[in-house]
Nucleic acid binder design. Structure first.
Lengths: 183, 183
DNA sequence: GGGTGATGTTAGCGAGTACTCACTAACTCG
DNA sequence: CGAGTTAGTGAGTACTCGCTAACATCACCC
């Protein structure tokens, strides 16, 4: 027998959230199946419901964790920095850590798409609001600069989703490179 | 009996695309049902498949038309203008016409999300590329300015999706207003 | 060693899915 | 009128979905 050691519900929840992030990122709230998530997490599908109640609650928890992780990544990157230095640090860590694996990127996009549901929208707003508040506070820069920072992030998201972040396509290169110049 | 007059297949296709845009915008590629689309278009569900083959083909056609309409809207707005004037015109028409009804906005977000599928991705790339090419050409402005223009658009998309475009939320206001200042 | 509560599974329901098939009604044209 | 084409449907297939009820198993405590 393989070590049939039981885990705590909290450990399982984390495993399920890991699997859910991948699955939701790939297929969205509606497209993802709880069956696939359960399988990836190594448990039976009904146990997912015991742990999270409904699919929507699982989605909300996944998004909340995803955005919290992004915030923590920003905090580590900008630690001890101010002004443009802080923005630079967060900008580059955003590109390398978050976009590189595509999972968090896609999960983010799916979260925005799912905002028609008010409960989900509230989770997304809260996460995004925390992010903005932190960037404003740590950089200490004026609103139009912070706005441009987030705008660039959103453009990079979309270009990344289209698979054009490292493309040879000339217009794509101009848009991406234009982000760095605009700082 | 209601007048059982037949329409041409092309007319029906347009009607289906109208309905599909609404449905796909609301629920995404996976969440939308061909049943609901057929109902909204006033035809039977099997006939949707006669007209478009598969759900994915219908989605691709919907997205392609959606992005083409955006391009045409830009062209009408920027007609006879150059430089910053052209950007201003396109920027304001983007906010009023495209984001206001939320349908095209949401459809756009769903398109980015669905980019994991290579066929869909190609449609989105083509549409986006046409848009960028036009804005570059009509404005005649340097890459970093065009990049900032699209970045602002993407941020407005996301803020709109979260229902924060006209919100009282202070941080949301700062981000939105920051867009105008940054120009 | 027997109760107790948390961890987990098997079996299954009811609803909905994309898509197909066989067919009919409406229109076109010689 | 009648042959041929286009527009459109009703009924169904085979399958997936989220979710539930009932049951099993382990860890621990007295």
């Amino acid at each position: 027998m393989t070590t049939a050691v039981r885990q705590s519900a909290d450990e399982r929840r984390e495993a399920v959230l890991d699997a859910a992030q991948v699955e939701f990122a790939a297929r969205g709230l509606h497209g993802a199946s709880t069956e696939a998530i359960a399988k990836a997490a190594g448990i039976s599908q009904p146990y997912v419901f015991r742990l999270f109640g409904t699919k929507k609650e699982l989605f909300k928890a996944t998004i909340a964790r995803c955005m919290r992780e992004t915030l923590e990544t920003f905090q580590r990157a900008a630690e001890g920095k101010r002004g443009e230095d802080a923005l630079d640090a967060m900008g580059s860590v955003y590109v390398t850590d978050l976009i590189a694996d595509r999972t968090r990127l896609k999960a983010q996009l799916e979260a925005y798409s799912a905002c028609d549901d008010p409960e989900i929208c509230q989770v997304v707003r809260d996460g995004f609001g925390d992010l903005v508040a932190y960037v404003e506070r740590v950089s200490g820069l004026p609103p139009e600069r912070v706005s441009a920072f987030f705008a660039q992030g959103m453009l990079i998201n979309v270009m990344s989703a289209m698979g054009l972040k490292d493309s040879e396509e000339p217009w794509a290169r101009r848009l991406i490179d234009g982000c760095k110049e605009g700082a």
